[in-house]
Amino acid sequence: MTAARFLVSGRVQGVAFRAHARAEALRLGLRGHVRNLADGRVDVLAAGDDGALEAFAAWLAKGPPLARVDGIERLPTSDDAVGAGFVIG
């Protein structure tokens, strides 16, 4: 089990990024949350199988069709910080 926090920047708010990220996370069997930050970035916390987490990281780097991802910062975290399911905050 691996966990990571991602800070995604670009045009990532107002383009259904959170809903698409949740759907992709659930498809990959991940748990965690996604939320908008006041500075315009999206904060994603995810935990699960190493391969699924890497696939999710690759998806986050592109985002949904209406988004434009300019950058993604990946930070290590403990899976203890991740709750059950995948929640939009």
Rank of each mutant, 00 (worst) to 15 (best):
D79G: 14
L37V: 13
G10N: 08
E73V: 05
A4I: 00
I88F: 02
L45Y: 10
A52E: 05
R31E: 11
G51E: 06
D50K: 13
V44Y: 06
R68I: 02
R74W: 11
D80P: 11
Q13A: 00
L30A: 09
F17P: 10
V82T: 05
L45V: 13
F17H: 00
R11Y: 05
G89I: 07
S78Y: 10
G48V: 06
V12I: 06
L75W: 11
L7F: 12
G71Y: 11
V15E: 05
G14E: 03
A19N: 01
G51M: 10
L30F: 07
P64E: 15
A52Q: 01
D50H: 15
A84P: 10
V15Q: 10
E24G: 04
P65F: 12
G83Q: 08
A19F: 13
A19K: 02
V44L: 06
T2C: 14
W59C: 11
G48C: 04
D50I: 12
D79V: 11
G14M: 06
F86V: 09
G71A: 15
G63I: 08
F6H: 01
G89S: 11
R22D: 09
D80I: 11
P64H: 00
A21R: 04
R31N: 12
D80V: 14
A21S: 12
D80L: 15
D50N: 10
H33G: 14
V12S: 03
R41A: 07
V8Q: 08
V69D: 00
A58I: 14
G63M: 03
F86N: 11
L7C: 09
R22P: 06
R18F: 10
V15N: 04
A47V: 09
R5S: 10
G29M: 09
D49M: 09
M1N: 13
R18P: 01
R68Q: 12
V82N: 05
D79P: 15
F86K: 04
V12A: 03
R5Y: 09
R5G: 05
L37Q: 06
G85T: 01
G40P: 06
R31L: 07
L7D: 05
A52V: 01
V87I: 15
G32R: 04
D43H: 03
R41L: 03
N36M: 01
S9W: 07
G89K: 03
W59N: 11
A81W: 00
A47W: 04
E73P: 07
K62C: 01
V44K: 15
G51Y: 03
A46C: 13
L7W: 10
A19S: 06
A61I: 11
L75G: 05
A61P: 14
L53H: 13
G40C: 04
L75Y: 07
V34Y: 08
A52P: 06
A25F: 08
L60S: 10
G40Q: 01
V34F: 03
G63D: 02
D43F: 01
D50V: 13
A23C: 05
D43Q: 02
R27D: 11
G29R: 06
R5T: 09
I72A: 01
G10W: 04
E54D: 14
Q13L: 01
G14L: 12
A61Y: 09
V42P: 06
V44H: 01
A21C: 14
G29L: 05
G71V: 07
S9D: 12
A21Y: 08
A23D: 00
R68P: 03
R31K: 12
G85Y: 02
M1T: 15
